[in-house]
Write a protein that binds this DNA or RNA. Structure first.
Lengths: 135, 135
DNA sequence: GGTCGTGTACTGGTGTCATGGTACACGGGT
DNA sequence: ACCCGTGTACCATGACACCAGTACACGACC
């Protein structure tokens, strides 16, 4: 119900979990105080070894996004929203920067880039459906 | 003189070589028939093992960008320009798509993205200097 | 023909990732 | 008090990518 994982991709599984959790918090899908699925439960849902999930949660804990409650589970820290939006901004910012460097050094013009950008934006918008965000 | 490599990055060295060669061909910095630096020469320039360069050149050879001349070196295939521009387009297209997916699922609005995009575009433009391409 | 430089193949070391298994400490529920 | 579920820790294993070192085969050039 929660995440979509593609194993064998160029990004490790545990990092996919980390990123999706952070993005969900930034988006407001995960709110402060809310509990995240347990290590074993999410592991069985995604057909992944619990150790891999644990590694992702541990990373999220050191990033001050999750907080452990011994014996109960892990909850989203109430002050993690700003951190996650910040992380999201730097994430997409760096990605955009890398894309621009490659595209410009490859001879693409700013006009080409704007066109491609808008085209992909429309594509994603209509792929998400005519409605807005599904909250 | 040719390439800039950052070891320890998330992208392998040999792939950085491959991409930069393709982008240079797409941009017209490398023309068909032109020779590329030899494996050992480029390796000593970048302080990299020759085998890594060889792997990149081999990849470029299977991608029909370079052509080996036994005993002399490797040259850029004359029909590789269209292939490289195509590769560049799909490269930046995929990257833009991935960025958009992450950004939208993280709650960013299309307006946020346009703003960020234009900001980074201006940043890159002025970072490259007031003049245009340096051909 | 010999030397040089070219690309290429083979081998090995190293690090990361994912998995599996086991065990432990803690707290909530009955 | 007792079990159960929780996160956590540790070790070992297999697979895979990256990279370095070395040696080889081929062709140009003198």
């Amino acid at each position: 119900m929660f995440f979509s994982i593609e194993p064998g991709g160029d990004v490790p599984i545990y990092e996919q979990i980390v990123r999706q959790v952070k993005l969900a918090v930034a988006d407001g899908v995960l709110v402060g105080g809310q509990m995240v699925p347990s290590v074993r439960q999410l592991a069985s849902e995604l057909a992944i070894n619990p150790n891999t999930i644990a590694r992702a949660y541990q990373q999220l804990q050191t990033d001050l996004v999750l907080e452990p409650l011994r014996g109960r589970g892990m909850i989203v820290r109430r002050d993690s929203v700003s951190r996650c939006t910040k992380a999201r901004n730097s994430l997409v910012g760096d990605a955009v920067r890398r894309v621009l460097v490659d595209a410009l050094s490859g001879g693409m013009t700013p006009e080409d880039l704007r066109e491609l950008f808008e085209a992909e934006l429309r594509r994603q918008a209509e792929l998400a459906g005519p409605n807005g965000s599904t909250k």
